[in-house]
Computed example of a mutant assay.
Amino acid sequence: MMSESPIDWTIWQGEMLATLMFVIKDGQILLIEKKRGLGAGKINGPGGKIEPGETALEAVIRETQEELLVTPHDPVKLGELRFSMSDCPDILCHVYRSEDFSGTPTETDEAVPAWTALDEIPYHRMWEDDRHWLPLVIEGKTFIGNFIFEGERVLWKEILTDLVW
């Protein structure tokens, strides 16, 4: 792993704007197995690209509805993930947490829902960076995660915590 970042993160901007949602309820987290697109076959939270004219909050609700047919209640933004990628545009991802939802998590063309105990999260099937920041989401802490990827491997990382949005 690189010891220093070659990127000045104070001026870095993501080319692709995206979201992730994690519903945590009754000691479990609602994850998905992604069926297509970036990260197909991996486990993650529902989410996706922010459309032009859409806020991050509007996008994370829409994406969760499209991928799982559920509507998260009172989402709270906990983090931002900044990904410098070797094989796709740089991504700025807004990370949200919700404690409740309406609807029934349902498989769609995009995702298979998977309720998972908080102590059984399958990090081995997730992006390499997830193990560094998902525990912060579970704890309800705010954060920024800066990551440099080569393919699917993290070359450098930095996590800043206890931020005020």
Rank of each mutant, 00 (worst) to 15 (best):
K141R: 15
D90S: 13
V76D: 08
W115G: 10
D8V: 01
R97P: 09
W12Y: 05
S98R: 07
P89C: 10
I159M: 10
L17S: 06
L68A: 07
M16E: 13
K77A: 15
L17C: 05
S86T: 06
K141I: 00
I159R: 02
A114T: 00
S84H: 13
E107G: 12
F147Q: 03
R125H: 14
T142E: 03
D8H: 03
A117I: 00
A40T: 02
E152N: 14
E80T: 11
S102G: 09
S5G: 03
L17V: 01
V23F: 07
E33A: 06
N146K: 13
P135L: 03
E80K: 12
P135Q: 05
V112E: 08
W12F: 13
L31S: 07
V76R: 12
R125P: 01
T55M: 04
V70Y: 02
P135K: 03
Q13M: 04
C88V: 11
Y123K: 05
V154I: 11
H132S: 12
I138N: 10
F147W: 07
V60F: 03
S3C: 00
P72C: 05
W115Y: 05
E51N: 14
E128D: 13
T142K: 06
M126K: 04
F22E: 02
V76Y: 00
L57P: 06
F143C: 11
